[in-house]
Write a protein that binds this DNA or RNA. Structure first.
Lengths: 234, 234
DNA sequence: TTGACTAAAAATGTATAATATTTGTATACT
DNA sequence: AGTATACAAATATTATACATTTTTAGTCAA
């Protein structure tokens, strides 16, 4: 019973961190979580140590675990490094993929598409995460996978706004993202590595724009009341 | 008392894995190690979970921890990926290094040089590890650092033979390696990134040759008795 | 001798209790 | 009033005891 709970708990914690349900930088309550998942603190702490190694949380001596933070200083490096890692992984995935793996990728994409059309922000972001993680699996490179996984932690957290459609423009952006995934799948399946890289870059550009907006949002209008209405206001 | 022991134990285990004192793929005895380090199983298990996240060990459900293995299939990827990671890290380190970090690097290099001249294989390999890890620190890129650390785990284990001088030729190779480190330091300190990359590639080539020999050693001579001595043998 | 079954033992995983540390607060002292 | 110290509560860590699982050794029948 509790054996399964441990795995469930680990997965759940990962998801909750990715979906910002557990806020970046916030303290993790060992007692509360252990009760919540019906396990004791010992296995929960072991999970936290695992997650610490994966970069999800940070352990501090004698003051427990905190959710990994996302300072601006690291964000800069994030934007710098992402294209290199994503493209390299995409290339290797294209060269190494097996048909089983492609099938799994398509399955994830099916779920992703459905979730996006339903407008479920958190789920969509998580499935997007799994999509890119699966490409990482296909690259079959444990060394780069370590980088990729770390990038995706921050990427997914930053993209929580991305999949939240507020306007027609946002809707369009999301469907564009879905289309790019489809194109990436066929490039990978067809072994066209340079095309896969190209599509990966385009895909990155799309989400980068949105994420940069999140990190550095559009400034508030200087004229609090728009020019048009000003005359009437006074 | 035991608080310190935990950190000591974690460091020691890492070192013992890197030095092949704990063989790749071998089982890890929780009870034995916890006694050895004077801590109980709980903190030891937490350490193992941490090391699992870092790629030093592999946890298997209900059958404990094993030292991370080094199968040949992964070695291929290792040789493929190393230049990219090492060079990218070297470039970023050159751009981001602080004087404090350079000083630390020089300190490590001092110890490395001394150890190499004394012919202490394990220690030399470990200091070489710390040298390259320090360059990783200087790059200040947590994403690539994850890859670098994983590469270095295997690199250091493979290079255990490297620093074992058997012949004059080996001596020369080791001193060449020391010199390359020195050159890398000044390139990094001077901010000459393209030079740093170049030196990194040369350094890689040197150790790659040796490591490949280890993975795929020179074939045994077909003539068991050399031509010269054959006549006398019969 | 081989194979399947069983029981004992060894090792792993979990929960709880005991110990350490940190942090907040109140009180005494300068 | 401001600082320092001591005490208490909360929290984190470790140890131990217990439960579960795997491995091993041994028995018996084919």
């Amino acid at each position: 019973m509790s054996k399964q709970n441990k795995a469930i708990c680990a997965d759940s914690l990962r998801n909750r961190i990715l979906s910002l349900d557990l806020e970046a930088g916030s303290d993790i309550d060992e007692v509360g979580l252990s009760h919540e998942y019906g396990i004791s603190r010992t296995p929960l702490r072991e999970i936290l140590h695992l997650l610490a190694g994966d970069g999800y949380v940070r352990l501090e001596e004698n003051r427990g675990a905190k959710v990994a933070s996302m300072d601006l200083s690291v964000m800069r490096v994030f934007f710098q490094t992402a294209p290199l890692v994503y493209c390299t992984v995409a290339r290797q995935a294209t060269e190494c993929r097996t048909s089983t793996q492609v099938a799994a990728l398509k399955e994830i994409q099916r779920a992703f598409t459905a979730s996006a059309s339903r407008g479920e922000v958190g789920e969509t972001a998580l499935l997007n995460h799994r999509f890119h993680e699966q490409i990482g699996q296909m690259a079959d490179n444990p060394y780069l996978m370590a980088s990729l996984k770390r990038m995706l932690i921050d990427h997914t957290r930053l993209s929580q706004t991305f999949f939240n459609p507020r306007s027609k423009l946002d809707q369009n952006r999301i469907s564009q993202s879905v289309d790019q995934h489809d194109a990436m799948i066929s490039a990978i399946e067809g072994g066209e590595s340079s095309l896969a890289i190209d599509l990966t870059l385009q895909h990155w550009d799309l989400s980068r724009n949105e994420m940069e907006k999140y990190v550095r949002p559009d400034p508030l209008p200087i004229d609090v009341i728009s020019m048009k209405d000003r005359r009437n206001a006074f």
